[in-house]
Design a protein around this nucleic acid. Sequence first.
DNA 1: GTCTATAGAAGGATAGAC
DNA 2: GTCTATCCTTCTATAGAC
Lengths: 203, 203
Amino acid sequence: MITTAKRSLVKQQKILETAAKLFLENGYEGVSVDEVTRAAGGSKTNVYTYFGGKEGLFIAVVEYLIADALQPFKALKVSDHPPEQALKELGRTFLDVILGEHLLALHRLIVAESARFPQLGRAWFAAGPEYVYRSVEAYLEAQQRVGRLRPGNPRRAAALFLDMMTFDVHHRTLLGVTPRPGQAELERLIEDAVETFLHGYMP
Amino acid sequence: MITTAKRSLVKQQKILETAAKLFLENGYEGVSVDEVTRAAGGSKTNVYTYFGGKEGLFIAVVEYLIADALQPFKALKVSDHPPEQALKELGRTFLDVILGEHLLALHRLIVAESARFPQLGRAWFAAGPEYVYRSVEAYLEAQQRVGRLRPGNPRRAAALFLDMMTFDVHHRTLLGVTPRPGQAELERLIEDAVETFLHGYMP
DNA sequence: GTCTATAGAAGGATAGAC
DNA sequence: GTCTATCCTTCTATAGAC
């Protein structure tokens, strides 16, 4: 037997996932509530009772996408290996995640709507970049304590390292200037970043 | 005497500037042709005869904004000073430009619409980041030739330097996560980036 | 009998195109 | 300035679960 409560939850989830796909493809203004209900089944009334309207639906969708899309970061463990190896491992995982089509589309959506919905920009930053910065910071600090890296502000060092590895390639791919680079090119980029960083931070 | 051709040019310019302001504030879908003509004066027909429609107007507006907004970069001369001084000077100018409210809004607009209008992403990248990378690359290469920096791919080095100085603060400010940092904080950031970079690239 | 989901139409406003 | 299309939202009415 299917209870009402259960059906309602399933329906909410269905709406959320359908709307997510549409918003990622067409942006906030590019999607109508009619489209969402047509694709998800059910009635428009659902959107209004569950989410309060289109804006509420959009916020729920993006928060859901953020939580979901950033799972790989949470799973990302910076190993105890020595700096060169650990940073390269980290670089591979990190670039692979943020250059994924799904995350690029989400990033585009959030940047586009961050003026209209400031809370989304903050939620994204806290769950994504900030979280990763902190993981790397913790690793660098530990390495500093053991004397394998020279002392200095570890938060800043983490940001410098990740940023120099990331910005150019992310920016290009996000804007469709060049296609996503192959593994070989990414590897060269990672090596250059690690080398430059370690030259600056070795004791 | 005011010729017809002249009046038409003036009107086109007026529409362009009015639409620019509105698009920057509200995004592509957030602006109606009615609004533009109401603010610019004249009739909606102008938009269709001069620009072919809303999409044509938008493309013309963004291309105009790109050409205009990037004047500071063209004027940006990397001096012949030794690396530490030259890079710091460059850092100050560069951060000051890209953290300006006008450029942040343009960047938001382009990222938002780069999926719908791919040519805008490419035009922006070529006129902006690519141009700056190349200026810094030329400077670094010259310094390498004189032996003040160690040899290596100067394009990659330029990107690493600019990116590590830029990404975090630009990202935060773009999304409204934190307000634009004051001069003192920027100065610390620049110093850290220059120091880290030079540790890696000094001979 | 009461509550909730569904289906779809109606209202009121605004869009882009010509 | 007109025209047609579409948008978000609300409302009515029916069916099913508790």
